Amino acid sequence: MTLQDIDKSRYRRHLNRVFIGSALALAAFSLGISQLLIALFPDPDGSHFHWNLLGVVAGALLVGAGLSRLRRHPFMTEVVYVWELKQRLNKISRKRRQVEAAAQQGDETAMQVLQFSYAGSRQLWLLDDNTLVMDELAARQTELNNLAQAHGVTLDAERYDESMLERF
């Protein structure tokens, strides 16, 4: 995955619309399906929990299918990019201990993975206005830069490939 420049205002606007649209669609589908099931299969006891639950599950599946189909629409470009970036960073986080240990030993691949992780996290946190931990990230980046310089490694987040994680 290559890091891309994202227009923050466009991303936030599209994310909000996708979120609100998904929530409204989920509510409408859930209520509609539940009411249809209750009308078709009434319960003499008046308990319709199972039909309501089935309506919510079916609504969630329909919204998920809709988002999946709209994934390649130009409106979704920034939102899908951020979703995919979060998935990549999550995969790195699961192997962070092994990657950091290998980087301390001078492993160039581990350093490139960390560089991508730090660059992606910085971009993600700036897009989401989560600047509370930016100082910690800057300290880690400085530590990585010093480590790379000590081992003669040139860091480049663009060199990251998901297959690099298979080693750890």
Rank of each mutant, 00 (worst) to 15 (best):
G66Y: 01
H73R: 08
V63S: 02
V79G: 01
N90G: 15
L40Y: 07
D129T: 09
H50G: 06
Q105M: 15
F116S: 02
Q87D: 13
E100M: 06
Q98S: 15
N130V: 08
A65P: 00
M111F: 00
A101F: 03
R96T: 09
Q112G: 04
K95R: 15
E136L: 15
A101L: 14
K95Y: 09
L37A: 07
A139P: 02
W125P: 04
V56I: 14
K95H: 13
Y81N: 10
E100F: 04
R97I: 14
F41R: 10
F75V: 08
L40D: 06
A39R: 13
D129E: 13
G59K: 00
D43R: 06
W51F: 02
R71D: 04
V133Q: 15
H48V: 08
L26T: 04
D45A: 15
T142E: 12
K95A: 12
E100W: 00
E143G: 13
A139G: 07
A27D: 12
L31C: 03
V99P: 00
L114K: 01
L147H: 05
R97T: 14
A60Y: 02
L89M: 13
N52D: 13
T109N: 03
G120C: 08
R72Y: 05
A110M: 07
R72W: 06
L61Q: 09
L137V: 04
L147M: 11
R69H: 07
V133N: 15
Q149R: 13
N146C: 11
T131N: 14
L137C: 08
E78W: 05
A119M: 05
Q141Y: 05
Q104R: 13
F75K: 08
Q141H: 08
L67T: 01
K86G: 13
T77W: 00
A25L: 10
S34L: 01
V56Y: 07
N146D: 15
R69M: 10
Q141L: 11
Q112W: 03
Q104G: 10
Y81M: 10
G59R: 00
V99H: 03
Q141W: 06
L70D: 01
Q141P: 06
L40F: 09
I38D: 05
L61P: 02
L24Q: 07
T77E: 10
G59M: 03
E100I: 05
R140K: 14
L127W: 03
W51M: 02
P44T: 14
L61I: 12
E100D: 11
S68H: 10
V63N: 03
L24R: 05
N145C: 08
L137A: 04
L137D: 02
L85Y: 01
G32S: 15
G64H: 08
A60M: 06
E143F: 06
L132W: 09
A60F: 04
E100T: 07
L67N: 01
V57P: 00
A102F: 00
A28M: 10
L31R: 00
G55P: 09
V79Q: 01
G46A: 02
L24K: 03
V113A: 04
A25K: 06
E136N: 15
H50M: 11
L137H: 08
R97L: 13
T142P: 01
Q123A: 03
V99G: 01
I92A: 02
E143N: 13
T109D: 11
W125F: 12
A110W: 00
T77Y: 01
A28T: 11
